[in-house]
């Protein structure tokens, strides 16, 4: 039962529909339609409260649900409610020392968006107008000139390393910064961006020579 994407429960004041938070919405939607079609005989004409819970839904998703459910139960008077998930924020990705990492070879060009659910290594350049986003660390073996966002699910310990770090904007977790307007760079050295005291710092990143 726990593996089911949609669970219908009859209650005194109506029906409670529990949706799985892990499955894609398209599957949830088709399962909701199926479940309601199966139990259509249960709903005689009359008034029902239908309460969706278990996952947070966007405005668009809610409209889709309402449209489909009211189509199936066109005989009944229904009012639809939602129970907001209390701890809805996404899990913060913590495996920045060891964990899921995506490797990408090639240039990320303007208009392209590269995302990783874990760490991200780009072997190539990140051009202006493009965006790379990772839940963990980002390492770029090339030049970063676009927007770069590390620790996007909220990990403030995430860092960004690049051979040439000249981004349009740097974001780590919830902090956003940009280079000064008249930033003239003379030499290109590998650099590392990280958060210290709620501020993004950038240090040169040279392997210590002993």
């Amino acid at each position: 039962m726990l593996n089911e994407s949609v669970v219908l429960k009859g209650k005194k004041d109506g029906v409670s529909v529990i949706l799985s938070p892990d499955m894609p919405f398209s599957i949830i939607m088709s399962d909701v339609i199926e479940k309601f079609n199966q139990s259509k005989s249960f709903f005689s004409s009359g008034a029902y409260n239908i309460n969706f819970s278990g996952r947070s839904l966007s405005q668009d998703e809610r409209l889709q649900l309402e449209k489909n459910v009211s189509e199936i139960l066109s005989e009944c008077e229904i009012s639809i409610g939602y129970q907001e998930l209390e701890s809805s924020p996404k899990k913060i990705f913590k495996d920045i020392k060891e964990g899921y990492t995506k490797f990408h070879e090639g240039t990320i060009r303007s208009g392209q968006l590269l995302e990783s659910e874990g760490n991200l290594v780009v072997i190539g350049d990140v051009n202006p107008g493009s965006e790379i986003v990772a839940a963990g660390n980002i390492v770029v073996m090339g030049a970063v000139r676009g927007i770069v966002h590390a620790g996007c699910t909220g990990n403030r310990d995430a860092f960004i390393v690049a051979l040439n770090l000249s981004p349009t904007q740097i974001r780590i977790a919830d902090i956003i910064t940009r280079p000064p307007d008249n930033d003239v760079r003379h030499e290109i050295i590998p650099e590392r961006a990280y958060i210290k005291d709620n501020t993004i710092y950038i240090d040169e990143f040279l392997y210590p020579i002993k």
């Binding site: 202006p128 349009t168 904007q169 956003i176 940009r178 280079p179 307007d181």
Partner: peptide, 8 residues
């Protein structure tokens, strides 16, 4: 307009 780096 030179505002690219301010876009959120």
């Amino acid at each position: 307009l030179g505002l690219e780096n301010r876009i959120v």
